[in-house]
Design a protein around this nucleic acid. Structure first.
Lengths: 340, 340
DNA sequence: AGATTTTGATTAAGCGCTTAATTTTTGGAT
DNA sequence: ATCCAAAAATTAAGCGCTTAATCAAAATCT
């Protein structure tokens, strides 16, 4: 900058203001010098040093993105790529960069919290465990947080998917196909989405006048292997269900495998319905009918909300966004019916 | 820091040096004050401001990771998650952070190059197009670059997979199963890996005394849809091949679908062999036999090489790393034979 | 013509940290 | 007691940018 200033014959301050299209300042620059400054900047291939700017302003123009430990579950789950894509897309249109933090499971919480520093203006947290120390730490440091698929919580901005609705429409759909014995392969315990999906499932059954049997709800953790095991249990029961609603596509895939292993057909003998509707659902045979979560949108909204908040635009108290779900019908449930 | 200094009754400089475990400096601190400094830092929950540090030292402790435009091809490909995981893992063990840049296709090159600034100490580029302006820009700014799966090029550190060997062992394996009419579903044009894999394929055929027919090599772009289409062409030819070696798992999956659509069996009628061996290969039916690329390792090595370079450790002129491949045998080729 | 506003700038301080240069204190050796 | 080196510090400058405070000249008004 000082080079430019020298060349143009003006002060560094003028250059700074000009090059940043600064708004509210007492410093004014004539069109003439303004033009010259741009010319010389171009000529010198000037590149702003963001570190210096950050130090001076206290803003880094960087968003942190913290994903849960990949290895713990679903290292494969396209979910994370999609969230990342969404966050990055939105961030970059607003001139923000994205910094990746992945918390590996051992460092849960404390270790993760210790990584937080003024390198980022805000943080996007993906399905954080309830009450993670990260919230407190960010608060302490004055870093706003947007949590995607987190438990309802004081403080952070929240972006949630309508899980209850998801459970509801999934189950209603199965009911509409004539199923009465519908099982639910649950999501991982202590993840915010698990309970509402279950509740939607239960309510849809009640709605249809079906008395849910407790045995129909089997444990899962979003993984293929567990989905498979739980399904095997399910199928070997005396009066096996004719449909399975799985809490995500990976475990639905496990279910598919289990059913095939037991010598049964999908959807002929057992219908399977997944959740997330990532491309994963299109790879299995048969392709999964699945509740679509609009994951990328979750990421986009999170980044958007956060950035708005950062730029102080309308300190909206509607700090919570619920993204609607839809149902994508493919082959794993048979029936071409109904769009919900 | 000045708070700590005041509290302890020493200078900011002393605090700085102590807290960073600084090495070569003339400033010395007694064990006593050192201890006190740590105490007070703890007590005050001191958090270093990395921006200030970066400005002072010119090092940010951040690595950039630039992925090619996701939407262009293989938005689904687990490849990118894996590279990211590898880079992040290595970076974080060395105390580096990772900043995500995704170049969307329109902004190819120039636009991408313009994002480069002193925010990062080094840049990892994933399969950059030959001679992208990014290289030049980084050079200009003195930012070292490690390129993963790029074309051989002057300048950047290079991490490559042994694609030639991959093509070789894949094809040899098919030959060993008795196939003589082996097709190759090519990778995307102008991507560094495409040619060597093809060459390996050709050489393996020659080795086996098979004269390759030009019709056996069909175009692909790493996508499922294209894989499918090209395979359909292949199968409708008079004398169709009995085996297909695809340049990645996605397109292999397309081939699988095409074969099924044509009423043929895998591996009974046609064997299919994939490449990359991501988990994708385990999802298809039948599961894909595939050349394993050790993608995460590519990411790790890239980050490692880059960081070493940054820390000036042994300015090794071996600026190129070739990671070996292996073959994972599953169902899509039949035969349990041979491990290579 | 003088007072006042507007326009176009400059100066200076400071963001929080690093690091070289310099100074003071301490503890032997003579 | 005195000198000297080693130990333990302090001072000061600077990284590149931002921003408030200040100032001078030109334009406008009365």
């Amino acid at each position: 900058m000082s080079d430019i200033a020298k060349r143009v014959g003006t002060s560094v301050a003028a250059v700074s203001v000009t090059l940043n299209g600064a708004k509210s300042t007492t410093l004014r620059v004539s069109d003439d010098t303004r033009k010259r400054i741009f010319e010389v900047a171009e000529e010198l291939r000037y590149k702003r040093n963001p570190m210096a700017g950050a130090l001076a302003t206290g803003r880094t123009q960087v968003l942190g993105l913290m994903l849960p430990s990949q290895d713990a579950y679903a290292a494969h789950d396209p979910f994370y790529s999609l969230v990342t894509t969404g966050v990055t897309a939105c961030a970059s249109t607003h001139g923000y960069n994205v910094m990746l933090y992945s918390a590996t499971s051992e460092e849960e919480g404390d270790r993760a919290a210790s990584m937080i520093d003024k390198r980022v203006d805000g943080l996007v947290l993906v399905s954080p465990p309830k009450g993670t120390p990260i919230f407190a730490e960010c608060q302490r440091q004055g870093i706003p947080v947007a949590s995607i698929l987190g438990e309802p919580e004081e403080g952070p901005l929240q972006i949630r998917s309508d899980d209850y609705q998801g459970g509801l429409i999934a189950t209603r759909y199965l009911v509409s196909l004539g199923h009465r014995r519908i099982a639910h392969l649950k999501g991982r315990e202590h993840i915010a989405t698990t309970q509402p999906r279950l509740q939607g499932y239960l309510d849809a059954l009640k709605e249809a006048g079906i008395a849910p049997e407790s045995e129909w709800v089997v444990p899962g953790d979003f993984n293929r292997e567990t989905g498979r095991e739980s399904t095997v249990q399910l199928l070997r029961r005396a009066n096996r269900p004719t449909a399975i609603f799985a809490a995500n596509d990976l475990s639905a895939h496990g279910a598919l495998e289990a059913i095939r292993d037991e010598g049964l057909k999908v959807p002929g003998d057992v219908a399977v319905l997944g959740y997330d509707d990532t491309w994963y659902a299109t790879v299995t045979r048969p392709a999964l009918t699945s509740v679509r979560m609009h994951i990328e949108e979750l990421g986009r909204r999170a980044a958007d909300l956060l950035i708005r908040h950062l730029e102080g635009e309308a300190p909206t108290r509607d700090t919570e966004i619920i993204v609607p779900v839809s149902l994508t019908i493919r082959e794993s449930c048979g029936g071409k019916a109904i769009s919900m």
